[in-house]
Write a protein that binds this DNA or RNA. Structure first.
Lengths: 341, 341
DNA sequence: CACCGGAATAGAAACGTTTCCAACGTAGGC
DNA sequence: GCCTACGTTGGAAACGTTTCTATTCCGGTG
């Protein structure tokens, strides 16, 4: 609806039409119990005939709050991230917030740019997964950040809330399971040591061997990146080794896609020729001719928790110390592993 | 950086420190060529020492523009949507815009809510894919919408830009291909007639039979929803029919997941027992023990085009009539089809 | 009947920027 | 040397809300 000049009606138009002051109209909207019923009626009638809706820009300006939160990730085409986003979105939306989604495509520069963008009144908070825990630009910006933030699966020497996963235990269990099946040449392909999941997964992997009194197969640890390409490249190389691994742990859901591509290309049969364990459920992991044994975790809960941590800072006056919440993993047996021959 | 009161520096602080007026500071930022070099120097020095950054809330208020666009879809966990989002995001970000991502989870009420949310100064434009082209609430809101919008793969009797796909031709080609392989009992599982892809795909499917002078197998047309569950349910039913189809076209990438689940459960072998054609590339379609023959389309280009259409309205003064741009499909042969026995 | 207290309201300031208009100074042309 | 024109600047209005303070109005009480 428009006023006489053809522009959207403002609170002033409502005030004029209902014969009250702008202050009263504002209170009618935001604190209706402080305004007399008959006045409220007049105001509401005017609002209805004018089709008035408060202007979000002006509210943001005056209230100093945008009701918007940034969600910064590598790549939304990663199904784990997509699920996580959904969980965060559901929780935040229930509290009136909307989400900016920013894909950084694995580039630290875009990460820094995203944080810059979100500052200075564009968002009230951020939830983010860094590509790299060492990038100085990003860390510097995070330290100066004037809005609350939550890290997803990352660890920084800063006072920032974080939601983590106990990857080490997950990998230890998975590796133990394979060792129990008689496997010794077990390979792991995962992220580099520059992010927590990479470090923790390798740690769990090595610990499992140590606890069994076996030497960890150092030549089969491929820890560098979570990308499809890295998974493909390393799996291809592993499968062509002289003393080929009898099992591969594809620790990362994009890595899994690359690994499966290599497996397909080299005509390897799962689980006959090779046992396989994946991380995180995805269409591919659940379907690949038979469900793949995988290290699962509760994405929805993780996302919801991150949102709740942020909401505590956003809505509450709570300025508690930074909190780290760690979620467990669960080994889900599929059909992709057989005893070693 | 903060001013004396511990709050972020404003343009006024900069003006005071550099000894010029706020107007001049503003022009130094937005039209530096209209301010004398020495003045510019003083202002820039002040900006640097104060660490001043303009407040986005105030800019939004004054400029009447948010540099934000809404992207409304069903489900970001759908890989096609995720890819499309990325393309749109890349293009929009290059022009300074950020994206609100709103998942509607297939509910028309959330669709309407999303549009409401985006109005009245929260976004400058919208790109959206509706769950249903008939929902009156959504249509009413779209008609009243005061910001430009672009529809993705949907058709409405409104003056709205749209980016479409020539699904009919794609389906015709795919169906012809199967007919050429000797298949007659060909099933199609796809969206309902309430959205364009559903209508067009069924149309192309039927036309292929007509052109070959064959009767279209009406009992094998399952047109209702794009969900995984629908794909699973219909594929399960089709596979248990007395006169089972010899080929299935899973026309929708979520449908494909459901179909593959049913195939797995009933121990059907592709392509030996059943030929299969999918729509849109996805990890699953490319990997499923061997790439599946699929009807492809250029997601990135589609997303980019949608973004460009919106940008024309956003930046330009162009108020051209609504435009519809249609993209072709391409049949990509995989290994999931064999001649009918 | 005057006064008091509380609830309801009017009015204005404030949020931080952009932009418009007027004023100023300087250089160039006559 | 004066007038004009232009480039540069200062100052103020404006964007549409929320919120604070002051005022009004009412009923009830002394």
């Amino acid at each position: 609806m428009k006023n006489l000049e053809g522009k959207a009606a403002t609170i002033r138009d409502v005030a004029r039409l209902s014969g009250v002051s702008v202050g009263t109209v504002s209170r009618s909207l935001n604190a209706p119990d402080t305004v007399r019923p008959d006045t409220l009626g007049k105001v509401r009638a005017a609002i209805k005939t004018l089709g008035f809706q408060p202007d979000a820009r002006a509210q943001t300006m005056r209230r100093r709050t945008t009701m918007t939160v940034g969600f910064v990730i590598d790549d939304i085409a990663n199904p784990w991230h997509a699920s996580c986003f959904k969980a965060v979105d559901t929780e935040m939306r229930a509290h009136g917030y909307s989400l900016y989604l920013m894909s950084t495509n694995g580039r630290a520069s875009q990460e820094a740019a995203a944080i810059d963008m979100l500052q200075h009144g564009r968002a009230d908070g951020v939830i983010l997964t860094l590509n790299n825990e060492q990038d100085s630009r990003t860390i510097a910006r995070l330290k100066e950040l004037r809005i609350p933030s939550v890290l997803l699966d990352r660890e920084l020497p800063l006072e920032i809330d974080a939601v983590l996963t106990d990857h080490a235990t997950g990998l230890r269990q998975a590796t133990n399971y394979l060792i129990g099946l008689g496997h010794r040449r077990i390979a792991i392909i995962t992220a580099g040591s520059d992010i927590r999941p990479g470090r923790e997964r390798v740690r769990g992997f090595v610990e499992a061997f140590e606890q069994s009194g076996l030497p960890a197969p150092k030549d089969l640890i491929r820890s560098q990146s979570l990308s499809v390409d890295f998974g493909f490249r390393e799996a291809s190389a592993l499968l062509q080794m002289h003393e080929r691994p009898t099992a591969i742990i594809a620790a990362g859901n994009r890595i899994l896609v690359g690994v499966l591509r290599a497996i397909q290309q080299q005509n390897v049969s799962i689980p006959r020729d090779l046992s396989l364990i994946a991380c995180d459920r995805s269409d591919v992991a659940l379907l690949y001719p038979g469900p793949i044994t995988l290290i699962d975790r509760a994405v929805e809960e993780i996302g919801r928790t991150a949102a709740q941590l942020l909401l505590e800072r956003l809505t509450g006056q709570s300025s508690r110390p930074a909190q780290r919440i760690t979620f467990p993993t669960h080994l889900i047996l599929g059909g992709s592993c057989l005893p070693a021959r």
